[in-house]
Design a protein around this nucleic acid. Structure first.
Lengths: 210, 210
DNA sequence: TAGATTGTTAATCGATTAACAATC
DNA sequence: TAGATTGTTAATCGATTAACAATC
């Protein structure tokens, strides 16, 4: 791993957006596109697009542009959409349920194999064909199934307490919806903190300062 | 409006994080904090904290640091957490339901006054004490209640079609969970596009490139 | 007063944009 | 071949960090 070590966070955060737009173009039967035309669609500069893509390889062709199908596939590879990583979801409240039911985990490189909640009353209930298990079974489940990613839809204190345990159990990545910031300082652990409240407050600011 | 026009997006995106950490410190009964101590807690540099805060005013005191309660309140004001803007939510599927039930709209400056879905079968069902209405009633509802913010939990094509109509109806801000990017080029309209799929793919990349 | 810590200016760093030679 | 468009280097811009005089 670590082949693309030099690539900056700013570039990486744009990759899913490229993937999205290229996917649409592909759906619409478009075969090729120049960085200039893509820049107009996406609201980036053509220069930035060429720079970004060149972090990973020369995917284009002078005088022609980029082949959409193959660029889409390349970016998919970079993002690991076919990696099929085993993931577990912890917390089957409103948000956890919505995430479990709503997200296309498969299309993004994940395979949701387990759902946990501390609420005994939920145990056995099915979400997406996956049974909700009691959190007590987490240790054995991880030992037997070796998931590598955990989706946290639990309150801050629970997330704070659980994160180190999950690292012990072999979790390499967190998709964290709790109010708590999982430190980016676990060595060798990837974290995406999704702070919906922060996003809502940013919107509040912008609406007030249009 | 537009008083803080010069402030960069990077700074604004950090404000909710300040607000969160200061809120916790306040809860814990801490009275004052220096930029240095705060920097260690938050993982920013002290320099950045002082720069960020000074975009909005001199909230600190030399030799003392920052008073937590008053800084918390100031940032709250900047973010508009007491603005109580009328908001509507469109799309009461899994995600819409979770957002409606899970988010503390009030604590972030919003008052959720209406929920809409095109599915007739959901009409009348209550979420958080708010009845789900049929989307057909949107026009009259907006005319009568003048909401200023719309939360979109609907598929891309629906979001794309609805956005301009909502602008017509007086919506000034979008919290958009659809796959579609609402253009930041509506003049005078604030947009927060929340792309959960993009976040998940970014995590996928990071896990593969630790 | 002396010590601490801010507010603010200057220096550095990184990311974006522009330019253009290479080449399909 | 001529035209188009990339890959890549150089220039610009903005954001972060460092430094320090002001001041509580």
């Amino acid at each position: 791993m670590g082949k693309n070590e030099g690539v900056s966070i700013s570039v990486i955060k744009r990759l899913p957006r490229y993937y999205r737009f290229l996917g649409e173009l592909k759906e619409n039967g478009v075969i090729r596109i120049s960085s200039k035309d893509l820049s107009e669609k996406m609201g980036f500069t053509a220069s930035q697009i060429r720079q970004d893509l060149n972090c990973f390889g020369g995917f284009g062709q002078q005088g022609y542009g980029y082949n959409i199908a193959s660029l889409y596939e390349e970016i998919g590879k970079i993002l690991g959409v076919n990696n099929n990583r085993k993931a577990i979801l912890i917390g089957a409240g409103n948000l956890g349920k919505a995430i479990a039911l709503h997200m296309s985990f498969e299309a993004r490189g994940f395979n949701l194999i387990g759902i946990f909640d501390k609420n005994e009353a939920l145990s056995g209930q099915m979400l997406r064909g996956i049974p909700i298990r009691n959190i007590d079974g987490l240790y054995n489940f991880c030992r037997d199934n070796s998931p590598t990613v955990a989706v946290l839809c639990i309150p801050s204190p629970a997330a704070q307490a659980l994160a180190p345990q999950l690292v012990e159990l072999g979790i390499k990545g967190f998709w964290n919806f709790s109010h708590y910031d999982i430190a980016a300082d676990y060595p060798g652990i990837a974290v995406e903190n999704v702070h919906l409240s922060d996003s809502l407050m940013t919107l509040s600011y912008h609406v007030s300062n249009i």
